[in-house]
Amino acid sequence: MSDISESAGHKANPLRWLVVAIPYLWLLVFFLAPFFIVFKISLSQVAIAMPPYVPAFDLAAGISRFFADLKELTFSNYLWLTEDALYWKSYLSSVGIALVSTLILLAIGFPVAYGMARSPKAWRPTLLMLVILPFWTSFLIRVYAWIGILKKEGLLNQFLLWVGAINEPLTIINTNTAVYIGIVYSYLPFMILPLYASLEKLDETLLEAASDLGCPPTKAFWLITFPLALPGVIAGSFLCFIPIVGEFVIPDLLGGSETMMIGKTLWSEFFNNRDWPVSSAVAVLLLLILVVPIVVFQNSQMKAMEAGK
């Protein structure tokens, strides 16, 4: 009996290896290899050449040369980042914008997801469809559309003037307000979907039991609904927070000159300064900053999976 099961296990092995290898291969090819290239450029020095830097070391030049180069490696580009207030200011401002946007997203997304989960079962697929519908249009076009809505002679101002709410057109485009509007609009589905997924699973009999035992609805919400929706809250928040920190398109199109985000700083370092080494250093640091929330997210996911067992 034991013999049979063992041989079966042996036969399954190569396939099992393949299944395990694919994600690792994916990680290697699409994350570690590009990261290594960027990291290598971040250690090099800028030059007037094609490409515009002098490589810090060259693996093809032979082992002895490689070790000689290794001794001369400098982290001067990283030091430069600490010396100039611009970089940490834009890191901080990016994290701040991401934090505030995530809170706004949560405040809007939670009631929407809650309403969807509490709606009659027959409506739910339609409601879900409506949340996903914007993805049918290109993200870039939707952000451009906001320019038309928010600009001085745009739809919003015309409407407000027509209603009589304002006398002078508001300046919204090219300000941080426009950036928040753009971000909240673009990321809302990413907040609603995980929230909806966890709220829909919620066992309503628990709430009935609570009310039978005399628990007021608000208290029941905080004691039962919210804790059970927490995995969705965490998933939605990280799903929004992490990409917002590195956002470039929205601040570039809707933001003004006072909008500081690390994505824009990186762009100007790369394009205006032609400084590939420093922009690579900025990118490596950005990644390190994002690794912290990603690890926290992974941990909470693991816990949720274990709890699910």
Partner: peptide, 16 residues
């Protein structure tokens, strides 16, 4: 290159 870096920095300051 080293002056270009200063120029971009000054201009970023002006714009922001």
């Amino acid at each position: 290159p080293n002056v270009q870096r200063v120029v971009t920095r000054i201009w970023t300051k002006v714009k922001s």
